[in-house]
Design a protein around this nucleic acid. Structure first.
Length: 428
DNA sequence: ATAAATGGATTCCCGTTCGG
DNA sequence: CCGAACGGGAATCCATTTAT
């Protein structure tokens, strides 16, 4: 029995920020200060210290500069959002205007972060959000319903003109833009048939998109009409967002805006409920899939129960133990390594790419992957593995230095590892 | 009728990537 | 190697919808 026969999910109770650590830095700031201005000042410092938000590219070792007024405005916006969401969960209270204090609940949550670390903290935050909204339930169950034969995986393809080998300077007229959308639609239909196993005709949806671009005067009525180059980025972004929305709302029938969806997904990733990646090898765009299950009953030892719903269904995260999962893990990194190597020719392959494939196939969180690879590497150093694993920090020759900054680093034995090679040991 | 919420659209920003 | 263009996440804006 679906819990939403009794209620609707409250998917917009979450405020507009991605990182769960914002909860921590706000609580910390209120623990130290009462007055809203002082709280904000501290919040700002902690935000910078933990490099939260602003850009997905992490700054490396550059001292913080003075904020512009605009940036300050943005920080205040986020601050306000976090403040509001903390109030929803009863973590803070305000008896006098612009004065805040922690509630018992808030103090307890802050303590969890400082004593038990961010993982336990995230799990507690999850419980707060879920008890308020049942939002994660909505997404996990929807995903499995949408793509039951493929582990609940959702695809969000993105193909910029560049990706389709169309030069910017060849997109100067209305007809060029339309040609781009037609080529794009072919790719989208192809991806849908491959990954969702449905034949979809996107022609009429594409006509709607073109109509909208016309209504906004971004493109003309005749194919020969020039587009304004200042509008170029806007046009491309409109097209991209249109299709992302279309996949979300029309194909998957998920009842939440793209911006809220992104926030839910990103938060779920931090909790370890689902994985999301923009770097899955051989796919262009975003992929989202659950690494947890919800059902009424007891799960095997490979799962960790983190929540129980009022109808007795439980949410379990797939979190196997190394002792029992070791064999499957080794087998999968071995298989996936050779899959990737086939298209690569080089002995070493990109480790984050391998992580993507193994995490997807075994439904492991990235954290568990790193932990298990660490164990495997240890055994390998002691010659207790049937394969030989080499990990290096070097990059592949054709990869530029910057490619690693956009992806979460994989740290094994205290060192960031970028590439991996695997051999069979042939003396057995 | 007014205020708040919503969510799509736009802007900002900045590291990456391209093309010469 | 360099400057221009790209790209995408986050912040913000703002028209529309919903609540009061």
């Amino acid at each position: 029995m679906d819990i939403f026969s009794h209620m609707t999910p409250r998917l917009t109770d979450t405020k507009k920020f991605y990182f769960l650590e914002y909860f921590y830095i706000l609580l910390k700031s209120i623990e130290k200060f009462k007055n809203v201005n002082a709280v904000f000042e501290h919040f700002k410092t902690l935000k910078e210290n933990l490099s939260l938000g602003e850009s997905r590219y992490k700054k490396i070792g550059i001292a913080a500069e003075e904020l512009t007024n605009k940036q300050l405005g943005r920080y205040k916006y986020t601050f306000k959002e976090v403040l509001e969401e903390c109030a929803i969960y009863g973590l803070i209270e305000s008896t006098v205007t612009n004065q805040f204090t922690l509630t018992t609940k808030g103090t307890k949550l802050l303590n969890t972060y400082e004593v038990k670390g961010s993982e336990s903290f995230n799990e507690q935050v999850f419980k707060l959000i879920e008890s308020e909204s049942n939002g994660f339930y909505y997404f996990i169950t929807s995903f499995y319903n949408i793509n039951p034969n493929n582990g609940g995986m959702l695809i969000f393809p993105i193909y910029s003109p560049l990706k389709l080998h169309i030069q910017k300077n060849s997109l100067s007229k209305t007809g060029d833009i339309i040609q781009y959308t037609i080529k794009l639609v072919q790719k989208l239909e192809h991806d849908i048939s491959i990954h969702l196993n449905i034949q979809y005709d996107l022609k009429s949806a594409n006509e709607k998109l073109i109509l909208r671009l016309r209504e906004s005067n971004l493109i003309g009525n005749s194919d020969f009409e020039k587009i304004m180059m200042k509008d170029y980025n806007v046009i491309i972004k409109r097209i991209r967002d249109y299709w992302l929305n279309y996949f979300l709302r029309e194909i998957y029938n998920i009842k939440v805006s793209l911006s809220y969806f992104d926030i839910w997904v990103y938060r779920a990733k931090q909790i370890g409920i689902l994985n999301t990646t923009e770097f899955y090898p051989t796919f262009s765009g975003k992929i989202v899939y659950p690494v947890s299950i919800i059902f009424n009953g007891e799960a095997s030892n490979d799962f960790k129960r983190i929540y129980k719903y009022f109808n007795d269904e439980k949410l379990y995260i797939h979190e196997p133990k190394w002792s029992t999962f070791q064999e499957s893990f080794i087998q999968e990194i071995y298989n996936s390594y050779f899959d990737l190597k086939r298209s690569n020719r080089s002995y070493f392959i990109n480790l984050p790419d391998l992580a993507e494939i193994v995490c997807y196939k075994l439904k492991l969180s990235y954290r568990t992957f790193t932990e298990f690879l660490g164990h495997a590497y240890q055994l390998n150093l002691k010659n207790k593995l049937r394969i030989k694993i080499s990990l290096e920090a070097d990059r592949l020759p054709f990869e530029t230095k910057a490619m690693y900054l956009t992806r979460d680093p994989i740290i094994i034995e205290g060192k960031q590892r970028n590439i991996i090679a695997i051999d069979l040991i042939n003396n057995e």
